[in-house]
Design a binder for these strands. Structure first.
Length: 471
RNA sequence: GUCCCCAUCGUCUAGAGGCCUAGGACCCUAGCCUUUCACGCUAGUAACGGGGGUUCGAAUCCCCCUGGGGACGCCA
């Protein structure tokens, strides 16, 4: 039987990085084994599920390009089916109606906690046959009272638990709506899921789910419980750690290739390899190689990977993803160099697309004042001659390309018998307002001919004014 | 409290009894390259939680302790 995996988020928020990694693992395992990857929306909690969240999850999956083969299925579309299975269990005596009040249940739980035992439903209605007038019952699954439930987890190995630790869980509420541990079993069974990959917070749910499979006469799928993701401080990742939604990462200027690469290495490795393209992941990934230990999210490493992919991916692709960030920064890409050229120069100097946009403003817009320290150091009277000379030389350049520009600067330096620094630094400040920029030929190239000449003139005026002021 | 699970540099990890004087990567530091910044290159700091076993030999196997996490809902 070919592998069928599923990602089953509940739409009560955005797609967070932990969920995205689970989705990635499901997707990779399905792709690697040429199986199917199914998307299912677990929206049985009518109170908390929202259409916005559904959209947010779809947007996240779409951005990461984790395409699914079937679905999205919605559990709210399947209520008839759940009712049917509940009825079947009832008919077979594998489930029963429970009339206990929440108050009584709370009291029992408290007593048990105080007595130092695990809180569980005490089975009061287990053998009950008569209804309680005026009370709509819940339906409870009749869990086997003795024996062990065990399975070989694809990441954790063998896990076992005694049935005595389990109780009769509620599978349907008084209004008939089903609960999670039940719907998940019915769905995974109906959808032919062979491998359930999910967060390890579900380990404790697994034995009761296995019992339900067995009551239904179905073979449970295989399970792989992946460790969760921690924040940089080692605590469970949450909003107070900053960005947790994958869409936030998109908005912060990360490439999906980088996030995916980062996520796949969190809890999984292939020797010493750090960089993985999506294709390589599909080739090399295996759920069986995933670690058991929870991993902390390291923002710096993500940034490093993001820079790597900005440098490595075709500049056209990066440029396309840069566009929205330029717009967000109010930069008009029509007013300066072609985006792929910009990316080619800037990618190795920044870590995110936002930084790339912000640090490229001067190629599209004029800047105001020179940065004071840079101006003080480089736009001095001594810079006047080199600036004039380079202005003259550049005015002659018709082929405004890095090679020619580099030659023009070098020849000017040689003619003046000064080192490159004596001419490049003043020129850099003139062109960018600052003392840091790409190599001078590339800076000239990106700034463009007209703008370069005008900026040198402006710098010259600045130098003269300053000389005059100093007498 | 009860049950389940986890444990190698600050972080992500390699390691499946001798190849370990514990390797790689991020971060940090120094040097090189260089017209600045960055990239790149080189080097460096830094870890097997503790205690018992098993074995000729343990980061690797077993037990205990400690520490951490999860679950115990008519949430998913």
């Amino acid at each position: 039987m070919s592998t069928r995996t599923r990602f089953a988020p509940s739409p009560t928020g955005y797609l967070h990085v932990g969920g995205a990694r689970t989705a990635l693992f499901c997707w990779l395992q399905a792709r690697k084994e040429q199986g199917a990857y199914i998307l299912r929306i677990e929206d049985t909690d009518l109170e908390r599920s929202t259409p916005e969240s559904v959209q947010a999850i779809l947007d996240g999956m779409d951005w990461l390009q984790l395409d699914w083969d079937e679905g999205p299925f919605f559990q709210t579309d399947r209520f008839d089916r759940y009712s049917e299975v509940v009825q079947q269990l009832l008919d077979e005596g594998k489930a029963y109606r429970c009339y206990c009040s929440k108050e009584r249940l709370d009291a029992v739980r408290e007593e048990q906690m105080a007595a130092g035992i695990k809180p569980r439903y005490d089975g009061r209605c287990r053998e009950r046959t008569e209804p309680e007038p005026g009370v709509e019952p819940v339906i409870r699954f009749r869990n086997p009272p003795i024996g062990q439930v065990a399975w070989v987890d694809r990441v954790r190995g063998r896990i076992s638990i005694s049935n005595e630790e389990l109780d009769d869980l509620v599978i349907a509420r008084p209004d008939g709506s089903p609960t999670y541990n039940f719907t998940v079993v019915v769905d995974d069974m109906d959808m032919g899921i062979t491998l359930v990959i999910r967060g390890d917070d579900h380990i404790n749910n697994t034995p009761r789910q296995i019992n339900i499979y067995e009551a239904l006469g179905a073979t449970p799928p295989e399970f792989a419980h992946v460790p969760m993701i921690l924040g940089e401080d080692g605590a469970r990742l949450s909003k107070r750690h900053g960005a947790v939604s994958v869409i936030q990462y998109r908005d912060m200027g990360f490439l999906p290739e980088a996030l995916l690469n980062y996520l796949v290495r969190l809890g999984w490795s292939h020797g010493d390899q750090e960089v993985f393209s999506v294709n390589e992941m599909v080739q090399l990934f295996s759920i069986d190689d995933v670690n058991k230990k929870a991993a902390a999210f390291d923002h710096d490493k993500l940034r490093w990977l993001n820079q790597h992919w900005m440098k490595t991916l075709p500049a056209d692709d990066v440029a396309e993803q840069l566009l929205p960030h330029l717009e967000a920064a109010g930069i008009d890409p029509a007013q300066g160099p072609a985006l792929p050229d910009l990316v080619g120069v800037q990618a190795e100097r920044v870590h995110t697309l936002i930084e790339l946009a912000e640090q490229s403003r001067i190629y599209y817009e004029d800047f105001g004042d020179f940065e004071p320290t840079a101006a003080k150091k480089h736009l001095r009277p001594v810079a006047e001659a080199p600036l004039r000379a380079i202005h003259e030389a550049l005015a002659e350049v018709t082929d405004w390309q890095p090679g020619t520009l580099d030659a023009a600067v070098r020849e000017t330096a040689e003619a003046l018998e000064v080192g490159m620094g004596k001419i490049a630094q003043p020129l850099r400040v003139a062109l960018t307002g600052n003392s840091m920029s790409p190599s001078i030929d590339l800076t000239l190239w990106l700034v463009g001919r007209e703008r370069s000449l005008a900026r040198i003139e402006k710098a010259l005026a600045f130098v003269e004014a300053r000389a005059a002021a100093q007498g």
